[in-house]
Design a protein around this nucleic acid. Structure first.
Lengths: 143, 143
DNA sequence: CTAGAAGCTAGAGTCCGGTCTAGATCAAGA
DNA sequence: TCTTGATCTAGACCGGACTCTAGCTTCTAG
């Protein structure tokens, strides 16, 4: 049940380069073991951690924060509150980011609707065109 | 009603460095005008565009894409459909990003809840601890 | 046995979105 | 007048997260 770095790359979606990079950066809980010939071997739990890891990355968690988490894990039991606190802190960031995106989206949707109307009426160039300042202003500005 | 770069920096929230950088990158619709002494002068419409611009940036639109937009504007009327298409394309990216964040958030919230339960029961170290693989697996894994 | 694929390390390079520096000029106030 | 602060340009530098290269070893299939 040993996996080579190439297999782990395929299954995790990370490149072999990225896997070595993550290792250098201390993002694995336990040091990656080697075969006698120096080659890395990975196991099921590494794959599971990498899945978590990429999920956290996709949510915008930095490698630095992931490293903090994994360092808490390495220290062993007793710091569960810190781990929780870290996760909740990031949760807050993600929530804020969603709100920000949602806000920008609302503005853009509004603009697109207005733009569509004007395209239909053949007078669209004035919209979101900073050299014709009456445009955005007249529409309840984008701010 | 002329504004210096410093004033624009204050009002737009961008640094003077960033403003000069944006100009070099072609992110202004009309070339920034200069006083006879070489200093930049900005106007109300620049501020309005910068507000739109930072909104687009905050939604994750790259400078390259903003440049594409502004290039369409510079070409003048006649390409409104392309402008709309560009905006809608980005809208799609933002929607996808929101879904991605929301997904990660759901996973994290679930994990935090489970973690809290276990902390209460004093057996939390096994959770999200990749060196104890039974953990995530036993909880309906994070994948 | 040999070719080619896969692995190894150390370190350099890349892209993005700025940020900062050096060295010069210019402007305004005490 | 002198000083302080704002501005100018060109270009170097930064941090994050990889990605790639060179040069070498090792495995695997034919």
């Amino acid at each position: 049940m040993d996996l080579t770095i190439g297999e782990v790359a395929k299954r995790s979606g990370l490149s072999v380069h990225a896997l070595r990079f993550y290792e250098r950066e201390g993002l694995f809980a336990n040091p990656v073991r080697r075969l006698s010939n120096g080659r890395r071997i990975y196991h099921q739990e590494d794959l599971e951690w990498l899945a978590i890891c990429t999920k956290l990355r996709s949510s915008g968690m930095s490698l630095a924060m992931i490293r903090q988490y994994i360092e808490l894990v390495r220290q062993g039991p007793g710091n569960e509150h810190e781990r929780l606190e870290l996760l909740r802190r990031h949760e807050g960031h993600v929530e804020a980011r969603i709100r920000e995106l949602q806000g920008a989206l609302d503005v853009m949707r509004h603009k697109v609707r207005v733009y569509e109307d004007h395209v239909v009426r053949g007078e669209a160039d004035r919209l979101w065109n900073p050299s014709r300042p009456d445009a955005a202003a007249g529409e309840g500005a984008v701010r």
